[in-house]
């Protein structure tokens, strides 16, 4: 009797479990068949009424049925949980090709990037960074640089004067004179001087009344022109590529003697000639020279004991060459569409 009932219960339970399609139904089946008031518990409770022969048989069968139901429920639970997880994952599916939430950083100005690159290179070579006033005394801007009043290379028309004696500096060279003076005749002096300078020019594609300069100065015992050549070679390769070569051409600046212009082999054509180098294979990059003894003397250095070199370059020119920028005014118009292009510069 009980045996039949157990077998029927087994059948019932398994079909209920199999038809359960969610965890809740499964839980109900568990309570219904295996709970404390469930039929199997009832049967086990009623075992005492059975004969000695029947008892172990029914007992064993009841246990078997319970184990089978338990196992089937666990099996089904795992199955349902897996299905549920799968559904959850499915429901959480997103279009991963949609754009992410970006923070849009601002861009560093291209000229600032170039200046920083030059600064970092020269710091590595043992140069400090010196800055000076943009409104300068005539003395530092001209006289201390071997450009006495009435020197033909000096033209009042080219400078923004504030008074007869005060002007917007026309180059960063006055920082040289000020730095030398500060060292009171004792070397070494090894500095890079970046900054804004001003000339009385009409703004057009190649002229700007305000622009940047970076000046370098190295004064010590026994500094040679060949050292200048060495340092400038390092600079050229760093800024324009490892295969660059340089050449020095004689030139004239009042504050250096001898004076040179530095050309680099064209980075576009490698020296064969193209429109960047105007067919010459060489591009003029900067002016340089050995510090004029008058400049050393005026700033308190003994030219018999010390020599030095100086060089000056224009970050705008470097930027224009490097990126093929056609108009110097872009640097000061500050169009965001221009600025953003040099985010990585």
């Amino acid at each position: 009797m009980l045996k039949e009932k157990l077998l029927e219960l087994r059948q019932q339970a398994l079909s209920t479990i199999d038809s359960a399609d969610e965890l809740k139904a499964l839980q109900e089946a568990h309570v219904r068949f295996l709970g404390k008031k469930g039929p199997i518990t009832e049967i086990l409770k009623g075992m005492g009424k059975l004969s000695k022969e029947e008892r172990p048989v029914v007992g064993q069968l009841a246990n078997e049925v319970r184990q089978l139901i338990t196992a089937r429920i666990e099996e089904k639970r795992a199955d349902l949980e897996a299905r549920q997880l799968e559904m959850k994952l499915e429901s959480e599916k997103i279009d991963v090709t949609l754009p992410g939430r970006k923070t849009a950083p601002g861009s560093h100005h291209l000229l600032a990037s170039i200046i920083r690159e030059v600064e970092d290179l020269f710091i590595g070579l043992g140069f400090s960074i010196e800055e000076g006033p943009e409104v300068e005394q005539d003395y530092y801007n001209f006289e201390a640089l071997n450009l006495p009043k009435d020197h033909p290379a000096r033209d009042m028309q080219d400078s923004f004067y504030i008074t007869d004696d005060i002007l917007m500096r026309t180059h960063t060279s006055p920082v040289q004179a000020r730095t030398l003076e500060k060292h009171k005749g004792v070397g070494p002096v090894k500095v890079i001087c970046p900054g804004k300078v001003y000339r009385r020019d009409n703004d057009d594609a190649t002229h700007s009344h305000q622009f940047m300069q970076i000046e370098g100065l190295y004064v010590d015992h026994k500094v040679r022109l060949s050292d200048l050549k060495g340092i400038l070679t390092v600079f050229a390769k760093h800024m324009f590529g490892a295969d660059r070569e340089i050449r020095l051409r004689p030139s004239f600046f009042p504050f250096t003697e001898p004076s040179v212009e530095m050309d680099i082999s064209c980075f576009r054509c490698g020296g064969h000639g193209c429109n960047v180098c105007k067919g010459t294979g060489w591009i003029e990059i900067l002016g340089a020279g050995m510090v004029h003894p008058n400049v050393l003397r005026m700033s308190g250095f003994d030219p018999g004991e010390y020599t030095g070199f100086a060089f000056g370059m224009g970050p705008e020119r470097i930027a224009m060459l490097k990126y093929g920028i056609e108009d110097i005014r872009h640097f000061y118009t500050d169009d965001i569409r221009f600025l953003k292009q040099f985010y990585r510069a």
Partner: peptide, 20 residues
């Protein structure tokens, strides 16, 4: 001709340098 002059690196005192 400056092109005949070899490039050298300064032999003087090595200076420490850093941003202020």
């Amino acid at each position: 001709g400056y092109n005949h002059i070899k490039a050298t690196l300064p032999e003087g005192t090595s200076a420490h340098a850093a941003l202020t």
